[in-house]
Each structure stands twice: as structure tokens, then as C-alpha cells.
Design a protein around this nucleic acid. Sequence first.
DNA 1: GCGACAG
DNA 2: ATCTTGTCGC
Length: 252
Amino acid sequence: MSAPPPEDLVQQWESEQARLRQQVVEEDTEDWQTSPDFSGLERVGGVDLSFIKGDDINACAQLVVLSYPDLEVLYEDSQMVTLTAPYIPGFLAFRETPFLLEALQRLERNQPNLLPQVVFVDGNGLFHYREFGLACHLGVLSGLPCVGVAKNLLQVQGVYKSEEHQSQIAALQKGGDSFPLAAASGKVLGKALRSSDKSSKPVYVSVGHKISMDTAVRLTHSCCRYRVPEPIRQADCRSREYLRTHFPAADT
DNA sequence: GCGACAG
DNA sequence: ATCTTGTCGC
């Protein structure tokens, strides 16, 4: 059973996104961001939520902080949470942001010296129906630089999985290669990035907050050991592991 | 009616 | 998000 999308709630969320959208900073604001080798960058964060199969309410909210450029785990926080908002395409942030923000606040309270200088978010930033995806939402509410990295293409604002798009993907030769995702307006909302030599399937990078598009793409590439940026990959692996050990399969 | 739909 | 192990290929 699935209740019909609450019309009122969606409209309220749309206006909330429009309001917060004005606070997004689409440029580099930190010194390390303009450095050729990101000197000055020492900590990169990653966030993610993992669910128990067959349960879309209880989840493990995960925050990890890795060293840069070594990408070793410096901090890890797993917390079971109870989600209240439903998942509605275009409004993912209203479902996940509260818990990711809480994780960042716990860290700020307990180990402020380990706060990440940038956070990788599993999902889109400006590459969104109303140019305000999860990465922007978390960025504005936390005040931290954020980068959105989606594993699947969201068909939005004139960007489609067309033959042209497929051929552009085929043209990505090596890790670091990318091509722009331009809206009908001409604005580049994100970039498809071949994150490593091995993976032919790209990831979709977009600005979340307090970082430029080019810096976001360059940084994402420099944080990839595999297809998905290490901070997000670690957050994903560790939250799944947490669920495995604390909620063993309920078979037979 | 059909397809799309970040996580 | 999750349902799912091994397997074919480089």
C-alpha cells in the first residue's frame, strides 16, 4: 500500500527548496580549493544511509572522515535512525538530511578537530529539478563545502539518456575525463566523470555548496580508488556492515 | 496509458 | 535503498 503523494507537503517542500536555494554558494571559498594539489586539505567526509531489506523506515546513518590525500579512515559514526519522510523523487533531502546533519553535529560537539573540510554526498547537488538536491541541502544547513555524486543519471532540465549522451560516455577515455551536463538554459548543472581508468560507467558530479564545478570534479577524481569516491564508498560499506552485525538476517 | 523516478 | 552468487572476461 502506498498513500498518494501529499500535494500540500510537496508544495511546502518546493517553497522550502526555493528559499534555501538562494543561499547556495557556487564558488570556491576555501584556500585549498584553488591549490593545484589541494595543499591545505587534510580531511574529507562522506555520508550515506543504508536500509534493512524490507524496511524503509529504520536505517543506519553513517558519517566517515578520511585523511587526504591518503584516504585513511580517521573517524566513523554509525547511528540507527527512524525516518519519517517518504522518498519522493526530487525531495530526497527531506528524508535524509536531518540525520546526516545530526551526525555532523555530533562530530562537531565531540571531536571538532576532526570536522571534514568538504563532504561528499551520495546524490545530486545543483543537478536537480529545481537546482537544489541533497548535496546543496546538506551544504546550506551545515555550512560546509559539499559535493554531490550520483551513481545514476537524473533526467532533468533537458538532459536525457540519449544516443548522444551514450556516445559522450563512450568517448571518456581515462580516469578524469568528463563532459558537461547542460540544462536547456545552457547552464552547466553538473558533469559526467569517468572516475577511474577501470570504470566505464561514469558518476555524475555537481556542486553542493561552497565549491566550484571544476574544483568539485577535480577533487572527486582525486578521491577515487574505485568508481565511487572513497568517502562515500567507506560510508556505504560501513553502514551496511553495521546493519549486518546488529540486525542479522531474519531467515527461517 | 506509458515511462521516469538521486537514494 | 533493497531483492541477489556466481561467473565470464581482461
